[in-house]
């Protein structure tokens, strides 16, 4: 699915990530942890082609990011659902349209998928807020909407950057359950989070591996966390 080969990245100063190698196998479930500023968001961006590695290779669905055109990247993003740390909505459109946006830009018939959309909104507890504008939502509601948008196209891979940062424990369990459910359907999941409780909870439901960024390197954390 996603393959990083001896990759390094720097924003211009010193290297933020070095010698990173990783294969995300289909159907796998990973957590990514590390202190704030370690480069978790940067790592995810490398995984969905928003950043090009400064050294080494990143291959997405077998294609080297460096050789991909802008449209190739657009197509890849329809197969990778991303929950961004800062959500990123179109503030002039209601939540329901924002969640359906991947369908819209992919030229799919949004009307035909209306039932799916309603179900998804209900699952994320957003039905009462469906016609609100993004700036009118709470932080947690925005994160739920971002997750809903990430999975609406039923992507092969789901990358989530702190998807539970602003929600209470119960809601975070629900969102986790959704991700676990999707993983059981064969989707590859990678969640960046420093919520160790969430990670422990997940491990009861799913075979999850924990990656940790420390000292610019990516390490596989022990079973004990």
């Amino acid at each position: 699915m996603i393959e990083l080969d001896n990759l390094a990245y720097s924003y211009g100063g010193g290297e933020l990530l070095s010698e990173v190698s990783l294969k995300l196998a289909p159907g796998s479930f990973h957590f990514l942890t590390g202190p704030s500023g370690a480069g978790k968001t940067t790592f995810l961006k490398l995984c969905y082609g928003a950043l090009v590695p400064t050294a080494g290779h990143a291959r997405i669905f077998g294609q080297d990011v460096r050789e991909m055109t802008r449209d190739d990247i657009a197509m890849v993003r329809r197969r990778i659902g991303v929950v961004h740390q800062d959500c990123q909505f179109l503030d002039h459109l209601p939540i329901s349209e924002n969640v359906a946006l991947p369908l819209t830009v992919a030229g799919r018939d949004v009307q035909a998928e209306a039932a799916n959309l309603d179900e998804l909104l209900a699952w994320c507890g957003l039905t009462p807020r469906a016609s609100a504008l993004p700036p009118q939502l709470s932080g947690g509601e925005r994160q739920r909407a971002a997750l809903a948008r990430a999975v609406i196209l039923s992507p092969d891979v789901i990358l989530a950057d702190e998807p539970t940062g602003n929600v209470d424990w119960e809601m975070s369990q629900r969102l986790l359950q959704l991700l676990v459910e999707l993983n059981r359907m064969g989707k590859t999941v990678l969640i960046a989070s420093h919520d160790l409780g969430l990670i422990r909870a997940a491990k009861q439901h799913v075979q999850a591996r924990v990656l940790r960024i420390s000292n610019r390197r990516l390490q596989l954390a022990g079973a004990d966390l």
Binding site: A50, D71, A74, Q88, F89, L101, V105, A106
Partner: peptide, 15 residues
Amino acid sequence: QVIGVLRLVGAEDRY
């Protein structure tokens, strides 16, 4: 900002 969001959800330049 709008263009950025569209790009993130897989919109091609043409769109």
